[in-house]
Design a protein around this nucleic acid. Sequence first.
DNA 1: GATGAATGAGACTTCATTCAT
DNA 2: TATGAATGAAGTCTCATTCAT
Lengths: 231, 231, 231, 231
Amino acid sequence: MSISKFIHDKTATLSAKRERRKEARPGELLDAALDLFVEKGFTATRAEEVAARAGVSKGTLFLYFQSKEELFKAVVRENISGRFKEWNEEFETFEGTAAEMLSYCMNTWWERVGATRASGITKLMMSEAGNFPEINAFYQQEVIQPGQTLIRRIMQRGIDRGEFRPLDLDYAIYSVIAPMVFLVLSKHSAGTCGDPTLPGNAAKYLAAQVETILYGLSVQPAAGKPAKGKA
Amino acid sequence: MSISKFIHDKTATLSAKRERRKEARPGELLDAALDLFVEKGFTATRAEEVAARAGVSKGTLFLYFQSKEELFKAVVRENISGRFKEWNEEFETFEGTAAEMLSYCMNTWWERVGATRASGITKLMMSEAGNFPEINAFYQQEVIQPGQTLIRRIMQRGIDRGEFRPLDLDYAIYSVIAPMVFLVLSKHSAGTCGDPTLPGNAAKYLAAQVETILYGLSVQPAAGKPAKGKA
Amino acid sequence: MSISKFIHDKTATLSAKRERRKEARPGELLDAALDLFVEKGFTATRAEEVAARAGVSKGTLFLYFQSKEELFKAVVRENISGRFKEWNEEFETFEGTAAEMLSYCMNTWWERVGATRASGITKLMMSEAGNFPEINAFYQQEVIQPGQTLIRRIMQRGIDRGEFRPLDLDYAIYSVIAPMVFLVLSKHSAGTCGDPTLPGNAAKYLAAQVETILYGLSVQPAAGKPAKGKA
Amino acid sequence: MSISKFIHDKTATLSAKRERRKEARPGELLDAALDLFVEKGFTATRAEEVAARAGVSKGTLFLYFQSKEELFKAVVRENISGRFKEWNEEFETFEGTAAEMLSYCMNTWWERVGATRASGITKLMMSEAGNFPEINAFYQQEVIQPGQTLIRRIMQRGIDRGEFRPLDLDYAIYSVIAPMVFLVLSKHSAGTCGDPTLPGNAAKYLAAQVETILYGLSVQPAAGKPAKGKA
DNA sequence: GATGAATGAGACTTCATTCAT
DNA sequence: TATGAATGAAGTCTCATTCAT
């Protein structure tokens, strides 16, 4: 192998590496920004911190994002999971009971979204929605509505098939949604709600919630009717 | 009545009013601060805004609170409900089923805490806990732990009395906690989780959650066992 | 005189002083800004320099002007002389020859505008007009047009009365305008056009220009017709 | 013809083209820089803009000029017309009246300097001279002094020959200089002085100025003496 | 006590300049 | 030689905090 070969190799390698870095930069910045925004909030996060965590200088951040606010928007867009749409489609062909679908949904949601860093978006939006009305509208449309629609369809099917008791879905859907939201918030909120070890035992947590929910929603023999509390 | 009497009267009146106002000032500032911190976050809220909303000048705020951070701490301290402690004591003498106690608790919590502005603290801590470890520890101790202890004791009693099925309380308590946390977050998060009208229909929402939870927790005839999800 | 009298006096004095300073601040800042903008240009002038020259800190500047650009606009507005309007009115009642009016105008213009710091605006607009189209339009309307209108009216009257020879005023007005513009630019341009001592001898300069212009404009006996150059 | 010949040819062609471009580069950059500096000022012009307008990358600019400031100096040096020196020499052998020489000078100056992009240097120096004392000194020596010297010599000759009336040349020269400076400034100042259409009608403008100046300077019969202004 | 003018540290953002490719 | 990604000094602007009144 000649020297020129080495040179050529080196050039190619370095060039490729730089190319790869350039491609990777926005992603690295978005990752760093997601973490910090979720941890400290938008305003409390300094642009320089984001850059430093991504391993670049202050100026580089602004090479890829016009402003800190644009960075925020990009973080939300990038990490918003379009999976509810996908799951809505899956729902059409799903064979199994509504209970199975519900359980499947919650567990898959955890694996594919809740357990990933993307789940931080939930906390982020909760904290910052008021400061970013525009991006909040986008989030409503892309996440909240598809998510609620999916849950509602599953539960409606359960009722239609006689699996679930008659429910006012306007409220019943939150029996499913609240535990999921709660889980991701536990993950990102320094123990401010729930045990910090919850996310580590997400499977157990989810199993417990699913079991109670399904018991709670399902058609009950008359004998099983619980005492109604009255405050 | 001499002129000086008038003057004195006037002085007395003004001074009394000022005295009263002086007492009220910190309260007005704390109220204003709570609202703004909850709405916009700690860092994004300007001290001057707080002062303006409380109807005083910037300088006055710093007359009562050493710094913005001290103001934050005071806001949290002031609005932390010590009611869980109170309810924990009430629990000892409560006569009725565990189901009744649970229902009573959730509804009373809403009336006395959730429906008040103090509920904003939940969102506030969730957003800012990471930036204020010290105040977070305080919050854990004053709110989270007593709250979880109360729920746990009620549920344990339900199990002990045969009302509820055997439950792993480390996870089961969240069937009760999650819907409550979710409700207050809905109230303070611009629709970022759940319907913005939820807080307005809190009674219906809570009734639906309580019903499902109680169905879900109660001892079931074998026939009522729901299908288990696969995942 | 009692001690309380002293106290009262002191309070009043200090209070008055502070009040006076507050009133004076914008003016002091505008003066400083005018000097620096004229000397170094808008972009090359740092906001902090302006503040320092006005004897205040960086932050204070932004207490009075929303941004450096607003400061610029205020500087122009503040220093634009509306005198041409005033002189246009004076023209109506002026008794004397057109030549006298022209001479009066140029000399008065120097005393009231050219010799003051406001004359820096001419250079400032020349340098920055391209960067501030909006403020340039304002300047056109408030200064350029009234100024040209006045000169044109005077010259037209001169022609009408047979004092001046027939002139194409679209071009002839600049025989008057150019020397005046040139004089203020000499004052603010580090000798880049003309002798730096010109402004110090403005009276002589103006007298020389007026004399030549009036000789040049006035009706001439046929014998005096100068040789026409042809390039 | 072998393949290698082709290759060689191609290489040669490319290399020739590159050679030519290399030579041209600084010129393109200087042209771009002149336009932008004149239009927006030195500080407000970004190096990248200059490069973009010249059709090269940011890095290339710094290959040819050590810094933005060096670029500025080069722009001034490059566009400073040495023509006054040339005309000063021409003056020695010029046959014709002083009036003719003056007219010739002004018109030739417009054609060779004023009408070209190099005329922007006048505005540029006026705006930036204060920030670049060194380059200003150079400009004084290369342009201002030779220019004034030429005008002065012509006028002196006019007086000596009895064409012009006795004049204080320290001031009289500006009767010639001011209209020329005014014309180029009109061209580069967004209408901030004079009609924006002036440069388009430069010939007419110059003719009018020349006529008035010559009438104004020439020896007048006593009867033609204009009224003197009061001030 | 109350005010609000003033301060200056600190954050965002720009851009001249460098340098690996 | 040419490029353009990266840098970091420097500038604009904000805002918590102080202090004279």
